[in-house]
Write a protein that binds this DNA or RNA. Structure first.
Lengths: 185, 185
DNA sequence: ACTAACATGTAAGCGGTTACATGATTTC
DNA sequence: GAAATCATGTAACCGCTTACATGTTAGT
């Protein structure tokens, strides 16, 4: 499990509330890890109880008060230990691949629309990533000298971009295969 | 959830026992979906209770008897319905990406070995996929005329190959980034 | 008036992992 | 004699999803 670790990394990059973390998990951190706000609040409470993170009540005007979390010394230790222990390459789960193989026993042509839908979703994500890259790393407003943190964030983002490009190309391949199928007789 | 559907597809491709399914989930089906034998046995029992699949006790010599499952009419209906309903593009979870971003707050150089380990794992998988492709689809012993099922299986396998190649290239990129980091002073 | 954004939670359920358990046969 | 393969399960746990719940402020 790496949700705690993802939260630790995100809080090290910038302290914030559960709500803010949930928003980050829809954006940058969410490129490679997802979590709902319910899950985040629960884990934050446990992490606080275990002394991994500190809380600070922040009164706000015009908005509900929030709890700002930051990484405690113990949290840094936990993260460091995790970084130094090997993890297994994660197992993949592609619903769409199951569908594609299943299509052989149904109507393959009916799957074309679904594949195109997925392709649009991946194209949207790619556009989103590329905009982020331009804004934060390669654009005119990006910081000229980048520290290790930014270099590594950029490397992860390049991974997301490579993934989406790969998916788009593969889904093209799948569509060509679906179109090329001739009904048996 | 798609484990039931993955099992239906696999049983349509070829009926088999829970044990055999578990083995397939380590090979071909496992390219895009994983499941342990415990999970498979439990789901098979439920699917049988719901009338999605049929069982046949097969006595064997020199081996324990096995239960051979095959897809029932209801199972085909369930699969067909699922194939026709849209699913959301799955959310990604990459532990390694969390580690890479986390490395900025620890020792980035210490991560090099871990990244290389993952790269070897992906290289192994790629080799495995390519061997499977040669054996089943593009080699001299592969069937010349391929039906829809084989065409689609091949398309999924090409996806696995594209994924592993993408990962290898990206991990090269990550390694170059890690090596390029100069300690601040 | 309504919607969106801000902010934090509880409760039920379930899919999946990990550990434990058994027993035969084949191969080294 | 030990290990690997074949074959099927139970039990405990837990991470995560889905649904439900509440309340404020800002903008249209």
């Amino acid at each position: 499990m790496a949700l705690e670790h993802a939260i630790l990394v995100s809080l090290l990059e910038k302290p914030g509330s559960g709500y803010e973390l949930a928003r980050r998990f829809e954006r940058s951190i969410g490129y490679f890890w997802t979590a709902t706000h319910q899950q985040i609040y629960r884990v934050l409470k446990r992490m606080e109880g275990d002394g991994w993170i500190d809380v600070r009540e922040v009164p706000q005007q015009g908005r509900p008060d929030k709890k700002e979390y930051s990484v405690a010394a113990l949290g840094r230790t936990v993260l460091s230990r995790w970084l130094h222990e090997p993890i297994e390459p994660e197992s993949v789960r592609h619903d769409l691949a199951v569908k594609i193989r299943g299509a052989a026993f149904d109507d393959p042509v009916a799957l074309i629309g679904e594949v195109e839908r997925h392709q649009r979703a991946h194209a949207d994500r790619l556009t989103h990533y590329l905009a982020g890259q331009l804004r934060d790393f390669t654009g005119p407003d990006a910081p000229t000298a980048q520290d290790a943190g930014q270099e590594l964030q950029h490397a992860v983002l390049r991974g997301g971009i490579a993934y989406e490009r790969m998916m788009l190309a593969w889904l093209d391949d799948v569509l060509a295969t679906l179109h090329g199928l001739r009904p048996e007789h």
